[in-house]
Computed example of a mutant assay.
Amino acid sequence: MDNYSQMLAFIWATEHGNFSAAARANGLTPSAISKLITRLEDRLQVRLFQRGTRTLTLTEEGSAYLVSARAVIHAMAEADSLAEAFPGRVSGALRIHTMTTFAKHQILPWLPEFLARYPGLTVDVQVGPQYVDLFDQGLDVAIHSGGLPDSSRIARKIGESAWVTCASPDYLARKGTPAQPQDLLNHDCFNFGFHSAWNTWQFRAGTGDAEAGIVTLPIAPKAVFAQGDLLREMALSGAGIVKLAQFHIGEDIRQGRLVPLLSDFNLPGKEPIYLIYSNRKHLSPRIRVFRDFLEDKLKEHPWE
């Protein structure tokens, strides 16, 4: 067990760049991480890191050992998943990372039914606006949209979602409906508060010409927010115009609470949404049943 802890500490220190950050992320002290790695180096009789003042750099031996250590951790996780595969047994903790809005609008409505169907499972839902590879820290599944970095992970497309420029009927009654993209520059708009392609408001330059170019608007938001749900609340309150994902506001549009704008100027194509899991030969039953359950629910309740 100590060898396993040493390997985990080594992988964490590599991912976080120093002992302090690795310790904070995993509920340990820097001295505990340091001791585990020192024992590992003593056992292997090699130096794995060049230790700087604030950062760690892998030695050649450390780089080689990292590949093997990750393979061992993945093999142990696979062994655990095989132990779950006895007939009728789906159990353990399912760890999910996804966007806050996807968790709220596409997972939480069906989660009670899922938990009732698989009473041996517990679920840990972690949220964040952008994809982060946390599989070496015990993550089972990630659900994110847009482009993904190249990696050995499995990315299964479970849907696609347009980005919709919209406002409430109350706001449009007070301020008027924009007829062309440039009109947005004279409206109250809101955006995300972090760097993201989602903050780029692009439209076709014209509606009649299939070869029309693209216009990118220099939106100056009245306020910015860290979460899409806060943008949604601003729009629903009649404060102004937002651009949000269809999976997030599809029900608001169906119910007439929000009105799509400038649809004739929308660019073709939609943003893919992926379910991501580690590249394992044998997929854990808890991941498989969640994947199948979620895909069934998305088919039954499309957000368009």
Rank of each mutant, 00 (worst) to 15 (best):
D140K: 00
Y171K: 03
P119N: 13
D140H: 11
Q126H: 12
Q137L: 05
I143G: 07
Q126A: 10
M99F: 08
L121G: 09
T101P: 01
A116L: 11
G147I: 13
D150Y: 03
V164I: 15
F135D: 08
V90M: 00
A179N: 06
P178H: 09
D150L: 08
G176K: 06
G138H: 07
Y118W: 15
D136V: 02
V127Y: 02
V123A: 11
V132K: 14
E160Q: 12
Y171L: 01
D136R: 02
A85D: 01
M99R: 10
E113P: 02
V141G: 04
A85N: 00
D124S: 10
L134C: 07
A179L: 14
A197W: 01
S91T: 09
P149F: 09
L185M: 12
D136M: 13
R95Q: 10
L172R: 03
G159F: 10
V125N: 09
V127Q: 10
A116S: 14
Q137S: 13
H144K: 05
P109E: 12
L111S: 14
S151N: 05
A167D: 09
Y131K: 01
D136P: 04
E113V: 13
S81G: 12
L148W: 01
T101M: 01
R117H: 10
T177E: 13
T200I: 14
I107Q: 02
L172A: 10
H187I: 08
S145E: 11
V132H: 15
H195Y: 12
D136H: 05
D170C: 02
I158R: 05
Y118P: 02
F190Y: 14
L185N: 02
I154D: 01
D150H: 04
L134V: 01
P178I: 06
A103N: 13
S145A: 15
L148H: 08
L134Y: 07
T177Q: 11
A167V: 08
Y131N: 03
A173C: 04
G92S: 05
W201A: 01
K104A: 13
V123E: 07
G88A: 08
I158K: 10
T101L: 04
C189R: 05
H144L: 06
L185Q: 07
F135Y: 05
Q137R: 09
P178G: 09
T122Y: 02
D140R: 03
R174M: 11
Q130R: 12
Q137Y: 05
A93N: 09
V127W: 00
R156N: 07
W198L: 11
D183I: 07
S161H: 02
P87K: 00
D140N: 14
R117Q: 15
V90R: 00
P109A: 15
S91D: 15
G176H: 07
S168I: 08
